Amino acid sequence: MGQLSRRRLLYGAAALGLLGACGSPGRQPGVVTPPQLHADISVWDATAPPSAQVSSSVTVTWGHGISGLPEFPGDAVRPQELGGKLFLQICGDDADAVSDAASRLRPDGQLRWREQGFCNSDRTNGLGFKDGIVVPKTAQEFEQEVWLPDGSTIAVVRRIKLDFAGFKALSVADQERVFGRRKHDAVPLSGGDEVDLSAKTPDGEYVIPADAHVRRAHPLLAGAGLMLRRSYNFADGLLFISYQRELKTFVNTMYRMVDGDALLRYATTTASAAFRVPPLD
């Protein structure tokens, strides 16, 4: 099968067009592609990505499993849902097109786990907050923090069960202290567009609490690079997906979080894996 025809079978013509917009014809879609409304996320014990004709409205991203992602304190991951050989991310704005593509793109191997994800219209998670940790924004930051020279990237995929009832029992003010952001507009408690970790009250207290999520996960304090977060909600919580140049970007951030992030009182990871997302042939 020719190179172009195989790409069309796997990704669809529109997804091919997105590759050029990403700056390199070898990079997979679904990484820097603007988040779409629906997603089918699955992890398999399979060695090769599937091929099938799918709608041109969906983007398909896949990766091969890699080692090096530890189990973290507080994780509750069963052996079946730890690691995996193949990651498959199918995204689109049409739920039926995503479902159809998922039914056609079935790898030759055993399914470990699968979830259907979605984005709220206001881009909030199930706790009512927008995901607002520092992320790459400029073309230079994407080149330095997300992509490797060969056009590959590293994906971390974690299914997180959220304690909706416990979190929503808090006052809005306490919820905002957990995140370090205002709930209605996602502005940092320090004010302004960017998180100011040094901001203090007249009494000398940090405006953003020591255990706030935006402080514990901030790259400056975690000693890590930037990660591109492309997460989706699902019925029980959050399908966390991040893309980064190095796995240690996520690992260092997570170790900083388990050392005192208030948000982890309401979040339990139940599936976890890391993958290398290779460039297209």
Rank of each mutant, 00 (worst) to 15 (best):
G166L: 02
V157S: 06
L82V: 04
S198G: 11
D211I: 01
D96F: 12
R114Q: 15
Q110F: 10
C91R: 15
T249S: 14
G68D: 06
A271G: 10
G74R: 01
T249N: 14
V178D: 02
P49K: 12
S56N: 12
D93I: 08
T249K: 08
D281W: 11
A139E: 11
L263K: 00
A165S: 11
H213A: 04
G191A: 05
A101C: 05
F234W: 13
E194K: 12
R106F: 05
V146I: 15
G26N: 13
F234L: 03
E194A: 15
S198Q: 14
S171M: 06
F164K: 04
G30P: 03
A173E: 14
L247Y: 03
Q3V: 15
T124H: 06
R256V: 01
A46K: 00
G20S: 14
K200L: 11
T269A: 03
S190C: 09
L37D: 08
D163L: 07
P136Q: 09
D236N: 09
F118W: 14
G68Q: 07
S99Y: 11
A224W: 06
L221G: 06
V135F: 10
F250S: 05
G109L: 03
Y243K: 08
L197T: 00
P279V: 06
L37N: 10
D193Q: 14
K183D: 02
A235W: 02
V98H: 01
A165R: 06
D193Y: 08
V277C: 08
L82Y: 13
T61R: 15
R8Y: 09
R159F: 04
P202I: 08
G12H: 05
V157M: 07
N233R: 09
P79N: 10
T270S: 05
L220I: 12
S242K: 00
A273Q: 03
R114V: 11
